[in-house]
Nucleic acid binder design. Structure first.
Lengths: 354, 354
DNA sequence: TTGTACGCGTTATCAT
DNA sequence: ATGATAACGCGTACAA
């Protein structure tokens, strides 16, 4: 019953091998795989048996080449160490996986040059769509993307001049809103702690500076930053230098993310600084620990997973030629007030969370 | 000066277009890209100019098909929500990126059936190597992998019968060692909290059961588990049921990971249970927060990033036909003792960390 | 050093 | 419903 294979080169089973085994043309085998309903039941089952018997696995490279449909979506993020990006990627994987797309993920390490190189890599895979982070591309990279003529979504922040589609939120407004919240709680000496200082963290900081300046309360000594990646440890370190630089005269701190905020919180506890009585702390991103640590940490919640989902949906919608209602989507944000910024008079009330 | 393109189908620039523009054969263009030193300087620069002018981007699908070298490494992990896997993936990306390989990452969601489907997807991309998690594959998937004839590394745990290469550590030993540590601190009523209960968590639990039984201290009421994914919140919930089930008679808890341990710690604090005086807590994975939370959390450190690096290196080594000294690598683990399990007499000493 | 011929494994298109 | 033929874009192997 066994047919002899023609292709003997690499003992790889091809469409032709299956066709030979099933006594049909290669085209029929191709149809069984891609358009099963266009094949009669008898033939389909015969072919399927041959496929199973031989353990045939289609060669996607050949398929992509012939059909110019790769089923690949390229995704570029700056880091895998940051839960923020990983959460977005999770959303992308969820939607793209369900839709049958493969995700080719690359890590730019916050470098536009590295990003340009990786975008070339992505484009050489003939992706059907692209999701990239932010708007800080090199000129060359920008040209590459514009010439690619495939759906593209820039995520994580709102851009003035997006290449194609854009989804994010205003980091500047969020930063200013945090300051407004802290001012409303009666704080005056409000510090800022930031690390890595990428485009988005800088926007949060500018929001902070703008709002605090407007209130006539800004001083440069209130800012403590580092180019290093954020971490809990770095948060503690920066908090100590902030305190030192202001001789202890700080009554609130806005941390550019929750890792830094937790570091600040833990360090303050070790310094026997009462939170929020002596020091209020507000983080950013609202990671899970924020709601559970003692005292619970006020933070800015952003729908990261949802952003990934939405970005993927925009690509798919675009690919299915459906009209895109809006190419620019503002995901917004929400300040989750918790114990770390409640003013003393509120402390006996139960904090509303979620 | 402009040459007319032959391929007019999709305004995609191909090797032929570049060749025409540079007045050379397509093969020469191919060489400029893949073996530049085999082309004379004059021609190389002329061709490079044409490449730049036209914005040519090689078609990797065609290249893979013709050369049977895809430059793709497939990676399958069960979840992106768990920092443990993300850290391993980071290590893989580091090494594979530097070596010029693309990483195709898939998420099996802890389902062997989903894994089988995704392994098919990976194989259809003609990957040159594969990295997958654990040894819990379906029979079919196992066959697929064995027949693939490409380097394969199974990561995260030590396997009795690996398909090809294997790198991980013994979760069973680690679980038993944690119990030994807690016993040495004088604890007797040692609870276990676990969630998701995948193969690796189950091995940790069996290590716990074995060691505690050996000490004649095991009771089923000391175990609290849930099939849900781990989270800080779930840690708190499980801790409360553990306490309830034992009427408060628990003096130490071994949590299967640090999220659960943090949940337990924070919940215990809210219940005014003194740590470690009234309750010792040991986590697993040694995430960054463990060393910084107050009191600091004892945890089991495992070189996740390094495991990813090593797995990638094994693949690359294997691909370059270098002999593999050992196909099975034990990464080991280390219990990082911190304040959460120090017995009272040790409390005034400074805890050694790192 | 450069070029020619062919094939990689699949699918689009047109016939039957 | 099924098949024959011709690409898809590139690299291998050999020739010049």
């Amino acid at each position: 019953m066994q047919k002899i294979k023609l292709a003997v080169n690499d003992n790889k089973i091809t469409l032709v091998d299956v066709a030979l085994a099933a006594n049909v043309s290669p085209m029929t085998v191709s149809r069984v795989i891609n358009q099963p309903n266009k094949v009669s039941d008898v033939v389909r089952m015969k072919v399927q048996k041959a496929i199973d018997d031989l353990g045939y696995i289609p060669n996607q490279n050949a398929s992509s080449l012939a059909s110019s449909r790769s089923g690949v979506i390229g995704v570029a993020i700056p880091s895998l160490s940051n839960v923020v990006f990983v959460d977005v990627v999770r959303g992308i994987y969820k939607v793209m996986g369900d839709a049958g797309y493969k995700v080719l993920l690359v890590n730019t390490q916050y470098s536009p040059l590295e990003e340009e190189k990786l975008v070339r890599t992505l484009l050489s895979q003939s992706p059907e769509g692209l999701i990239i982070t932010g708007g800080d591309q090199t000129r060359t990279c920008n040209h590459l993307l514009r010439n690619a003529r495939i759906p593209l979504v820039q995520i994580m922040e709102l851009l003035a001049d997006p290449i194609d589609m854009n989804i994010g939120f205003s980091h500047h407004l969020a930063g200013a809103d945090v300051v407004a919240h802290l001012l409303a709680q009666g704080h005056r000496r409000i510090g800022f702690i930031g690390a890595r200082m990428d485009s988005r963290v800088q926007q949060r900081m500018r929001g902070y500076v703008t709002a605090l300046t407007q209130a006539g309360l800004f001083e440069t000594s209130l800012i403590a930053t580092s180019p290093e990646p954020s971490s809990i440890a770095l948060g503690g370190t920066l908090f100590k230098s902030l305190i030192a630089a202001n001789e202890g005269n700080v009554d609130a701190v806005f941390c550019a993310n929750d890792d830094l905020a937790l570091g600040t919180l833990f360090e303050a506890q070790r310094m026997n600084i009462a939170i929020p009585q002596q020091l209020a702390i507000c983080g950013f991103n609202d990671i899970e620990a924020a709601a559970h640590v003692n005292p619970s940490l006020t933070s800015v919640a952003v729908g990261r997973y949802e952003m990934g989902v939405k970005a993927a949906e925009l690509i798919i919608q675009s690919l299915s030629k459906q009209p895109i209602e809006q190419k620019k989507v503002d995901m917004g944000y929400a300040i989750k007030q918790r114990a770390s910024t409640s003013r003393p008079s509120n402390l006996n009330k139960r904090n509303i969370d979620e």
